[in-house]
């Protein structure tokens, strides 16, 4: 009895494993504390809520990419899924007069199709996901540029604004949405067989197959989750400006990758935590915010984020974890 207790105690690896699991949280706390001490504007409730709201969209998108990376693949097409969502949603509502709810379902279905295509090319077509999703990215981009002629589509009803800019009490609605999604995904990764399947497939595809995991299903599902969450994030971004915009997703891929890696996800798959992604997103957003508050040229953000990504990957590649 007691022997079972001893052998089922969490953190068999001791302090070291614990430390590596929560290193990013520790760094985040330090960063927030430092920011709060140095900047008065940072400490205001308004600013903090703003940071949270900004972080929520990107962290929803990053949680999708997280699943793809967890299975050992990569989804390059998210920027186009975001652009597609934004343009077609606005187009459906403004040009075709489709009700908001139906337009929402339509774009979500489109995202599912994008995910299925990515998954099919990678899992069934055995293409390297890097190339498959790169192709899908460009083709999609072509499609929504043709549809919109590259112009923004404005005039989405203001009632939709709530999704991107609404508040519940003092907390922005997107933050609530992000936390709900994160909680749901956490439960899926930890307490369901499918959730563990993502880790199994990323950790060792062949061994998973021989253990009876439906590896193809899991592989495709990861891309679908990624596309759908990109779509949800994009809806939030579109709701904020109430217009469809072709370049709404430009440059997001880099931030998303940084966030996923910052959260402790292994780029070769099989290792990572959903809350790590949330903390990674907050971390990156706080960096942006503090740089703005200190009135540093925004172009410096690219440099700083690049340095962060290199540092994190360097640490990850060169530390031995058990």
């Amino acid at each position: 009895m007691s022997e079972f207790k001893a052998k089922s105690k969490r953190y068999g690896g001791g302090f070291r494993a614990f430390f590596f699991d929560w290193m990013i949280l520790l760094l985040f706390v330090v960063l927030v504390a430092a920011s709060a001490v140095t900047s008065e504007k940072f400490r205001t409730v308004g600013n903090i809520m703003n940071v949270l709201r900004q972080a929520s969209f990107i962290s929803i998108i990053a949680m999708g990419e997280f699943f793809v990376i967890l299975t050992g693949q990569m989804d390059m097409s998210i920027s186009s899924t975001i652009g597609m969502t934004s343009i077609f949603f606005a187009g459906f509502v403004v040009n075709n007069g489709i009700p908001l709810g139906i337009a929402l379902v339509l774009v979500l279905l489109m995202a599912v199709v994008v995910g299925l295509i990515n998954g099919a090319l990678t899992v069934y077509g055995k293409m390297p996901s890097f190339i498959a999703t790169l192709v899908v990215m460009n083709v999609l981009k072509g499609i929504y540029y043709i549809y919109s002629k590259g112009l923004p589509i404005s005039g989405v009803p203001t009632s939709f604004n709530y999704l991107g800019a609404g508040y519940i009490g003092i907390v922005p609605f997107p933050v609530i949405m992000m936390l709900l999604i994160a909680a749901m995904l956490y439960v899926i990764t930890k307490y369901t067989a499918v959730g563990r399947g993502f880790y199994a497939v990323g950790g060792n595809l062949e061994a998973s197959k021989l253990s009876g995991i439906n590896t193809r299903f899991i592989g495709v599902l990861a891309f679908v989750v990624s596309a759908v969450l990109s779509c949800v994030g994009a809806l939030g971004l579109t709701a904020k400006t109430l217009s469809g915009n072709v370049n709404i997703g430009e440059g997001l891929l880099f931030d998303v990758m940084t966030i996923v890696v910052l959260g402790g996800t292994s780029l070769t798959g099989g290792r990572g935590k959903i809350f790590g992604v949330v903390i990674g997103a907050l971390f990156l957003q706080v960096i942006s915010n503090i740089m703005v508050l200190m009135s540093i040229d925004t172009y410096w953000q690219w440099v700083v984020k690049g340095v962060i990504l290199v540092a994190v990957v360097l640490i990850d590649s060169n530390t031995k974890k058990d």
């Binding site: 199994a200 060792n204 061994a207």
Partner: peptide, 13 residues
């Protein structure tokens, strides 16, 4: 090591 076990998993998993 290649086919029997997932080297990233713990004993329980």
């Amino acid at each position: 090591r290649m086919l029997g076990l997932n080297m990233l998993f713990d004993i329980k998993d």
